[in-house]
């Protein structure tokens, strides 16, 4: 199986560290960013399979980042994580065709399963 690559965007250092360690252990190529602007800058120079982003961040939230990313990479799956779930934001995510909406605190194995599935779908694996 070809190596998976993801970009994780979260303003919380703890979450970035947790996900970096976990996905690195799985042998994935993981890049982290602390803001939407930083994520966009990374994407200009690096191709990734999936964007995993926090919803509530200062400056640019996860849905605004999804919008910006979609403009340049329409096929990139986006998974949203949030510690502040709401019906409104979940419906907005649904309308933006976000691949999944994960509530924090999350079970890391479930998050892994979701992300892995979305990447497999994108690559057309298992068809």
């Amino acid at each position: 199986m070809e190596q998976r690559s993801i970009l994780v965007v979260d303003d919380e250092l703890l979450i970035r560290d947790l996900l970096y360690d976990f996905f690195t252990e799985q042998g994935w190529d993981i890049t982290i960013a602390e803001s939407g602007e930083k994520a966009l800058e990374i994407l200009r120079n690096k191709e990734v399979d999936l964007l995993l982003t926090d919803l509530k961040m200062p400056d640019m939230d996860g849905l605004a980042l999804t919008d910006r990313v979609r403009a340049s990479y329409p096929d990139m799956p986006v998974v949203i994580m949030t510690g502040y779930p709401s019906v409104d934001s979940a419906v907005s995510a649904l309308r933006q065709k976000v691949a999944d909406y994960i509530i924090k605190p999350f079970n890391i194995n479930q998050l892994y399963k979701s992300v892995e599935e979305k990447i497999s779908e994108k690559r057309g694996e298992g068809h």
């Binding site: 779930p85 709401s86 019906v87 979940a90 419906v91 995510a93 649904l94 909406y101 509530i103």
Partner: peptide, 9 residues
Amino acid sequence: LIELVIDAY
């Protein structure tokens, strides 16, 4: 409910 929306999509 949030769970309903997530389950639905």
